[in-house]
Design a protein around this nucleic acid. Structure first.
Lengths: 250, 250
DNA sequence: CGGATAGTTGAGTTATCTCAAATGCAGTGG
DNA sequence: CCACTGCATTTGAGATAACTCAACTATCCG
């Protein structure tokens, strides 16, 4: 089922895909019901939307190619991390991007803003012109609603991250990061026998939790020693979900 | 000028105010141009929008009164802090609310979500039914654009906060907090002779920067000793903006 | 096999926290 | 007006979590 959905991205994407594909646009919020065409009086025959497709190797960055107008990114396969960085190289990872994720704040995404997206696996993403994207939203009430939900959900996630960085200790931060990522992967059907793909390096986990790689290593060791997680060969299994939640705290 | 604008909030608010008042809705993003009525073909004679007005004393909380549908808050006068808190009382302050600020993520704003808004001065705010608010947005392309800008700006602010909490030291955090707040106040014309109202307690600054009140006190002392800021009697003056920016870092 | 990259571990350092006591300051009731 | 109570702030001393540095090991890739 998952493969089928991903396959629907192959080849050029046109308006039909735009409406129907649960892995396009703000799909997670339920934008693409297929019923969009017959619901609201305002819905018109939609104009074609320009969508480009890109592949990227693990560890490469997705940059703005100085496209002035900006765009919205739909992440279609693989894994990546989005972050904001300082000139000296320090950075804070904000989110792990999985297929179905959508990055809509790309106005700010120019070489000077410090924002980076780094692929952690070989990945595929699409770019949609920002204006066309917003135009399509305005014409579809159900898409508009879903987009608002996405904005609010994104804000909530960012706020929870701030709370974690400001007020939780190292072990809690690591536990939360793993828990959140695992739940996200499981929710989207990317877990095989409770095991998920985990291509992240220590440096990524450290940058996501505001710690150093060395300290991150020690905390992970502790979680492994206590049999809370199995982590080896770039794959992760949550061995004791109850304990992991307890460590992560409220 | 400022007083005049605020005065326009007195009494009942109707559609006319909704369109024209720069301190209502997502006004900062420029939503209320007055020109809204004659621009797009979709614009209809707008229905009345339900707006309620509330006053609140310093140190009181603005709660959800368990209104199921949710609402959007327009902050009209005074100062407040918005935060997300843990059951044990730890909290992270996310933003200082000034007149003209708008809180649109109130879907999540119920007693269980841990979100709090605490007035730090006697304040006035208004609540607008969320559905009506979004409905009005959908009918006005320029309002929709402004709302998108607000979403993106809010996300950017949240991400910068995460970066600060994750990757900057105590003095930088304090300096940034003061700098950001001072610039926001100055931008909106709330500075008198470079001096701004600063009703926050140590505890607030600590909760905004992820530090303890004790350590916050020590960092503030340092900034005062070095003549970077004057802070007394609940008012703040940035004495040396250049140095403050230097401390705050890139 | 060799070189590069990633992870582990220990030892010592430092930033921040905790605790506690002292001071200041504002509001209250006598 | 003054003592009193309660809160906010300051300051110092000691504890601790997280950091830095450095050496070592493991893993990957040509």
């Amino acid at each position: 089922m998952k493969a089928g959905v991903l396959n629907s991205h192959r080849g050029d994407v046109n308006t039909a895909d735009f409406q129907g594909c649960p892995f396009c646009l703000v799909s997670r919020a339920g934008i693409c019901p297929g019923a969009g065409a017959n619901s609201a009086p305002r819905t018109q025959p939609a104009a074609a939307v320009t969508i480009s497709r890109h592949t990227i190797q693990a560890r490469q960055m997705i940059h703005s190619a100085r496209e002035f107008s900006g765009y919205v990114i739909c992440f279609c396969s693989g894994q990546a991390v989005s972050s904001v960085a300082l000139p000296d190289g320090r950075r804070q990872i904000l989110d792990v991007l999985l297929p179905g994720d959508c990055v809509y704040w790309t106005d700010l995404f120019d070489p000077m803003s410090g924002r980076l997206i780094e692929a952690t696996e070989n990945s595929i993403y699409r770019k949609i012109d920002r204006k066309e994207f917003y135009g399509a939203l305005a014409q579809r009430p159900e898409a508009f609603d879903a987009f608002i939900k996405l904005c609010v959900g994104t804000k909530d996630q960012a706020d929870q991250l701030a709370l974690t960085l400001g007020r939780r200790d190292a072990l809690q931060r690591i536990a939360r990061f793993i828990l959140d990522l695992a739940m996200k992967l499981i929710d989207r059907g990317f877990a095989k026998e409770q095991t998920i793909s985990f291509p992240l390096r220590l440096r990524h986990i450290a940058d996501a939790t505001g710690l150093t790689p060395v300290h991150t290593s020690k905390m992970l060791r502790q979680l492994r020693r206590d049999r809370v997680i199995d982590l080896e060969a770039r794959s992760l299994r949550v061995a004791d979900m109850i304990q992991l939640r307890q460590i992560a705290g409220p």
